[in-house]
């Protein structure tokens, strides 16, 4: 679930849902309750727009294992 919402901090303003380039985030309303939901996590581009623009800094990005950053020491992998 790429963007992770800290629900204790989230003020449910909906700004992240508005600006997400991929329309991944939604504000779900159930009765009087509102909740910020990562509704389409597989469509996340990991661009961090939500994280950067969140007015209360309630979002951080988790990079999925599918997107692993492959790295190698320049000794040809001997160590």
């Amino acid at each position: 679930m790429p963007p992770v919402i800290d629900h204790k901090k989230c003020v449910k303003c909906g700004y992240c849902a508005q600006i997400c380039p991929l329309d991944v985030i939604k504000i779900e309303v159930r009765g009087k309750e509102k909740k910020t939901v990562i509704k389409y996590p597989e469509e996340c581009w990991h661009c961090r727009a939500c994280e950067k623009d969140c007015p209360v800094k309630a979002i951080h990005m988790r990079y999925p294992l599918s997107h692993l950053m492959l790295h190698m020491k320049p000794d040809g992998g001997k160590h």
Partner: peptide
């Protein structure tokens, strides 16, 4: 450039470009 997801990702994975190359 707007690609600081790379910086964030490297930090989370504790990858140091001083000693590691990126494929």
């Amino acid at each position: 450039e707007g690609i600081d997801s790379i910086t964030d990702h490297l930090k989370q994975r504790k990858i140091n470009l001083r000693d590691s190359m990126i494929e």
